[in-house]
Amino acid sequence: MTNIMLSAAPSMDFAERMAYGLQVFVVGLGTVFAVLVILWLALVLFKVFSYDLPQKKAKKLAEEAASKVEAAPIVEETPISVIEEPVSDDTQLIAVITAAIAAYNAQSGNSLPFRVVSFKRAGGANGWSGK
């Protein structure tokens, strides 16, 4: 197939080349758009089934749970023991983490400036450990 076209190419005049080029242009770019639009539609379905529906379901469950709590009879108040989390000053820890991020960014060649907006524990008393 390749040989046929290579031998035919020099015999094509300018108008034929233009017509042929236009044909490849339209079909080629059209195919690229068609494939990527189909992928787009597939990804929209992803969103519906993996993100929107589960979120709606979770919201519905939360509403149901809230309505059940409201409907439940109040029996009697029992003293609840509250375990208080030890409150500590994390200023130094935050400074260390900020410095670590800055050092990492500098090492990986990322010169983008960043601003610390908030720090949040991952959970538990040892939340900073990342476990």
Partner: peptide
């Protein structure tokens, strides 16, 4: 974003067209 990715392939086919129009290259 996929549409933008598709739009950015315009150069591929324009350059193909230009190279073919120059008459110095085969379609391949």
């Amino acid at each position: 974003s996929l549409l933008i990715g598709a739009g950015a392939q315009l150069g591929v086919f324009v350059a193909f067209f230009l190279a073919l129009a120059s008459g110095m290259f085969s379609p391949q």
